[in-house]
Amino acid sequence: MLGLVRAAVRTLPGPGRVIDAGRRTAGSVLGRAADRLVREVGEHVDLTPLVRRVVDLDALVAGVDIDAIARRLDVDAVARRLDVDAVVTRVDVDAIAGRLDIGAVVDRLPLVDLAQGVIDEIDLPGIIRDSTGSVASSTVRGVRMQSVSGDEAVARAVDRLRLRGRHRQVPEPRLNDGS
């Protein structure tokens, strides 16, 4: 009999376990009740004016580290989502150009160096020399072109006399090439 009592006592939970179970049960019940209470309050009470009245929002925001938030911000992702074209179309470029100080920009440009570089690159003195030389006058140019035409005429006549279907390859003049 005494053995049976001892075995039954051993199977019973200890007082600590009973207290923990009680706490868990009470916490769960209270949590559900608080959740229900907040939901009910939120549905029936306008919290925004209440928070404005009770909470010092300026002091709260002053304590926020905005720099830390900005550092965590993925700016590239924001830029990808941004429609830059739409933003640019709203910008008045003409107004910006009107406010631009072109004179100051030009003053900062090394125009002499740029001009010298261009002249060196295209060999402008050589072109002027070739263009204004005595043998490059319009008369000589005309004589040369006429003689080229004469060469072609002679070549065609000789080809015709030789009764050959294949003519000499004479390049076509590029009359409309503006390069």
């Binding site: 072109i127 070739d130 140019r141 072109m145 003049p173 590029r174 503006g178 390069s179």
Partner: peptide
């Protein structure tokens, strides 16, 4: 400076 029509 070669005229266009003579370059070819």
């Amino acid at each position: 400076s070669v005229p266009v029509e003579a370059r070819a």
